[in-house]
């Protein structure tokens, strides 16, 4: 008997064997669900352990690491973004003032209410 034939036989046996009565089917189903549930809860166990350790260290019992960690990350990210934006704004004003003060025109030209508009109007003519 070659390999494909053997596989066919096994398949036929398995197909026949799968016809179990309702009680056995229920038992098999329960066992499978139990195994799946255990498999799912394994990674959570590690996180729960870390959460407990944190709870013991920082006295934040009741607050899960799963809630705390994303919040801390978000907080740090937000603070960094705000600080970065502020630095950018300061740098922008520095650059602008340096350009303005070294430009061809005196400060009075930039303080004048009409000059910029006059220049723009003339350029569009």
């Amino acid at each position: 008997m070659n390999e494909p034939q053997f596989a066919l036989r096994i398949r036929q046996h398995l197909n026949q064997g799968a016809r179990v009565d309702a009680r056995v089917a229920a038992q098999l189903r329960a066992a499978r669900e139990q195994a799946l549930a255990r498999h799912r809860s394994e990674p959570e166990a590690g996180l729960a352990l870390a959460s407990n350790a944190l709870g013991r260290l920082g006295g934040v019992r009741g607050l899960s690491l799963r809630v705390l960690l994303p919040l801390v990350i978000l907080g740090v990210a937000f603070a960094t973004a705000v600080a970065w934006q502020q630095t950018q704004r300061v740098a922008e004003v520095e650059e602008l003032d340096a350009q303005l003060l070294s430009s061809d025109l005196p400060i009075d030209a930039y303080l004048d209410q009409g000059f910029a508009a006059w220049l723009k109007r003339r350029a569009s003519q």
């Binding site: 350009q99 430009s103 025109l105 930039y110 303080l111 910029a116 723009k120």
Partner: peptide, 21 residues
Amino acid sequence: QARENYRRISKVPPEKRGDLQ
């Protein structure tokens, strides 16, 4: 106001205006 005007004046293309002074 001066910074705002500086931005507006800088936006006028050099070929469309003469020497700024």
